[in-house]
């Protein structure tokens, strides 16, 4: 199924197929993900949504049995072409995972790690760290203890640190893979507010099992089922009048 929602496209996926060994995990997925917006990927476990997300920064390359066909263009460039530098790609397409995964080092070093690797000047690092922590809505809580261990932060703070760490290398796209599933409602709401703030500057794709979260934060929603992208549309349409019965069954909790 293909979809085009008319806004300027940041990520263009065409006829994407993916196999894990003999398992055909994604079938002919085509989708245009609009720039500066939040796109939610929903669907039951094993439907392919996280696999699809990982295709957008070639995280699946790390799985030996994985084979991919089709095109993924980001800002007009085919990210599966041979001359793509995958390290640079992952700088452009940042990722935040389900479980916060700060490095076992200070808050400052967590955020400055990426820019340092990518060649930032030492004299610029203080400013980069401050900007990233401010954009990650964490600065006020940690500005007086930047040298403390990141592992001493709460779960919600650690997740915002991971977002700040991603922002520090100035990506174009941020992928979120169930970023709030390990967080309490207050931390969840802080992350959701942050996502809404970040979409002004970034294109965001989020995998979530929480229907209400998808409804709250996303502009567009794609529903996946056993490797197919069944439906893609504006979130208000998907949650008010989905066109496909399986979408309706899933979001109203009537599967099974």
């Amino acid at each position: 199924m293909s979809s085009d929602l008319g806004k300027k496209t940041e990520i263009q996926v065409k006829d994407l197929n993916l196999w894990y060994g003999d398992n055909h995990a994604l079938h002919d997925v085509s989708i245009n993900i609009p720039k500066n917006s939040v796109t939610a990927l929903i669907g039951p476990s094993g439907c392919g949504k996280s696999t699809f997300l990982r295709c957008l920064n070639r995280m699946n390359d790390l799985i030996p049995s994985c084979r991919i066909e089709g095109d993924v263009h980001i800002d007009g460039e085919n990210i599966y072409s041979k001359n793509i530098d995958v390290v640079d790609l992952r700088k452009r397409v940042g990722m935040v995972f389900q479980k916060p995964n700060p490095f076992p080092m200070s808050i400052y070093d967590n955020v400055s790690y990426g820019p340092k690797i990518h060649g930032a000047k030492k004299s610029d690092l203080d400013g980069i760290v401050e900007d990233a922590l401010k954009s990650g809505a964490l600065w006020k809580e940690v500005s007086d203890r930047l040298q403390s261990s990141a592992l001493d932060l709460s779960g919600g703070q650690q997740q915002r640190l991971c977002i700040a760490r991603t922002l520090a290398v100035k990506p174009e796209v941020i992928l979120f893979d169930e970023p709030c599933s390990a967080l309490d409602p207050l931390s969840t709401s802080k992350i959701e507010d942050l996502i809404l703030e970040l979409k002004k500057d970034y294109t965001i794709v989020i995998v979530t099992h929480n229907m209400q979260q998808a409804a709250r934060v996303s502009d567009h929603t794609a529903f996946f089922l056993v490797g197919d992208m069944v439906e893609f549309g504006k979130t208000e349409q998907i949650f008010e009048s989905p066109q496909e019965k399986s979408t309706e069954d899933y979001i109203t909790g009537r599967f099974g």
Binding site: M211, E240, E248, I251
Partner: peptide, 9 residues
């Protein structure tokens, strides 16, 4: 129950 889609309507 947070009804959605047809249920919400």
């Amino acid at each position: 129950q947070s009804p959605t889609a047809g249920d919400m309507r």
